[in-house]
Design a protein around this nucleic acid. Sequence first.
DNA 1: CTGGCTGTGCAACTGAGTTGCAAAAATCTT
DNA 2: AAGATTTTTGCAACTCAGTTGCACAGCCAG
Lengths: 138, 138
Amino acid sequence: MSQTDIIDLMMHHGVKPTANRILIVNAFVKEHRPLSMTEIETQLESVDKSVISRTLALFRERHMVHVLPDGGDGIRYELCHSCSDDRDDDAHIHFYCSRCGKTFCLKDIPVPEVSLPDGYQAESVNYMVTGICPDCRR
Amino acid sequence: MSQTDIIDLMMHHGVKPTANRILIVNAFVKEHRPLSMTEIETQLESVDKSVISRTLALFRERHMVHVLPDGGDGIRYELCHSCSDDRDDDAHIHFYCSRCGKTFCLKDIPVPEVSLPDGYQAESVNYMVTGICPDCRR
DNA sequence: CTGGCTGTGCAACTGAGTTGCAAAAATCTT
DNA sequence: AAGATTTTTGCAACTCAGTTGCACAGCCAG
């Protein structure tokens, strides 16, 4: 994903592409996996955590990222390519490595559907496998 | 689940059944759904949060409860009936209501399995549907 | 250039959860 | 049963992630 693409993406979601914001999107592009606030903070020492917090809130509001549980005890943000502007749909499964604490997208594996009992109305689904990732097994 | 059953369960996991601990297990039995630390704290005003924290850590260690993401941004504990003493396997799906913030067990719906790419080694799976629960739709 | 709006950086705050520690309760030993 | 030892409890203090208040900087428009 080029710098131009990143700026286009932001514009398309009505987000003004400031220097800090571009750095944050770049972090996602570089890692191509869901990141926690803390991970972004560590990777971008120059950016204040309040800016990161507010930026993620903005991205979320504009559906540029979506949120998922991080397998450990917090949440992570995933850059959302395929989402339409007002919905979060990008239903692949995720893998959380309990050794290194990273979360990976398994883009090729769609979330298998289930049918819910009467009365339950689904909005989104999260399928998370916890275990050991290839890197950590070596 | 009777008081005797609760005590048996604790003994079976090598947990001494003190008054506080019985209260905490009772909270799970009463709600029969996964609870967050805060929910337990609210329900049991008489029990200090440090005791709840330590008790949950103990239960977890002894595989009397297991942990799952709470759909919002924290974690919840679920009383584990069917788990063996040293493994957490109780694979049904969960439903998180984004209106009332409660998490429900859909015990009848097993988690559909997927096959992972080479190198990924699964330990546990979490399938969580977010949406509106029957009570909140009324 | 000037006035207003948006974004930024620091510091102070907040709230969930944990830890240190001494008192209380339970258990063991003789 | 009395005393010694271990476990559990309750309080307060602390920690850490994340958020908010606020003043200043940067940017665009007239």
